[in-house]
Design a protein around this nucleic acid. Structure first.
Length: 275
DNA sequence: AATAAGGGCAACCGCTGCCAA
DNA sequence: GTTGGCAGCGGTTGCCCTTAT
């Protein structure tokens, strides 16, 4: 009954991968392609479990991986997706091309979680943390950390993130509509009013997406947020040299770029602010 | 300069659903 | 219909590096 065991566990090596092992795996995958992982270690001459090979490849060796810290925009996207999907890192990672579920999971646990807590947001529920006053026993929403000297955007948007989604304007709030049932995410009625979200969550990219042509930016002069037009504020995007809409697989954005090139932005300024 | 503490990240562990035998 | 391996996923661990004392 059943299949043969995937590997002989007694002869399997564990621990960090060496450069030689990496090379063997890379050469094998690039020449033979990804076949069944059970066969990979044997065929590639590795004393590793197939599972370990798959992990090493998907999390570290894949040529399409981005390295380095998540950008603020990516971070904001992770938060928004986490609010809807929960700890389903693979689903979240699927929306961030070049990023792995392990990487996002680690980044969440080490960076984003702390940021949210500092902002008084529960990283699990994405709702304001409840604080019990010692004297009154009253439970109130936690005020943001006093040390935070930046104004708090809607919900838990990081001020440095500029492509975030305005959850207040979204047809669904973070947690109450966050169901474990995947079908909910594919219910178009949930995001039909938000083309960007539709683009993110839909199975098929829409024919056209109206991207926000103004978005909030932190103005140091007035120490607050203000709306800036795309032209005024695209420098942040230019700073992220390897981070573009095409990296997200949002080819639908090319239409928008074309529209912008055709001068359509003038009449649409302020039309759709989904940040 | 030495040591401890904390943070970040790669890799492992264990569970679940699917599917071959 | 049952069994058990595989692939995929999320949780956890442990090592290594950095920072503080």
């Amino acid at each position: 009954m059943g299949r043969q065991p995937c590997c002989d566990k007694a002869g399997v090596k564990k621990g960090p991968w060496t450069a030689e092992e990496d090379n063997k795996l890379i050469n094998f995958i690039l020449t033979k392609g990804q076949c069944c992982w059970r066969a990979v270690p044997k065929l590639a001459g590795l004393r590793r479990c197939g599972k370990s090979c798959r992990l090493r490849w998907t999390n570290y060796l894949r040529p399409d991986l981005k390295r380095g810290l998540l950008t603020p925009a990516e971070e904001q996207l992770v938060i928004d997706l986490h609010a809807r999907l929960g700890n389903r890192w693979s689903k979240i990672a699927a929306r961030l091309p070049g990023r792995t579920d392990n990487e996002i999971k680690n980044h969440w646990n080490t960076h984003i979680k702390k940021k949210l807590l500092k902002m008084g947001i529960d990283p699990v529920t994405h709702e304001p943390l409840l604080v019990q006053h010692p004297n009154t026993n009253q439970t109130t929403n936690s005020p943001s950390n006093e040390s935070d000297n930046f104004p708090k955007p809607a919900k838990h948007q990081f001020p440095e993130a500029t492509s975030a989604i305005n959850l207040d304007e979204n047809p669904f709030s973070p947690r109450e509509n966050c169901s474990s049932d995947e079908s909910v995410l594919h219910d178009n009625s949930l995001y039909e009013n938000d083309p960007l979200i539709a683009c993110l969550f839909g199975d098929d990219p829409p024919d056209q997406v109206v991207v926000p042509l103004q978005f909030p930016c932190f103005d140091e002069e007035v120490n607050n947020f203000c709306l800036q037009t795309w032209d005024d504020s695209c420098s942040w995007l230019l700073d992220c040299q390897d981070f573009g809409v095409h990296d997200f697989g949002f080819d639908c954005f090319s239409d928008v770029e074309n529209d912008k090139a055709l001068g359509m932005h003038g009449g649409n300024e302020g039309k759709s602010i989904i940040l």
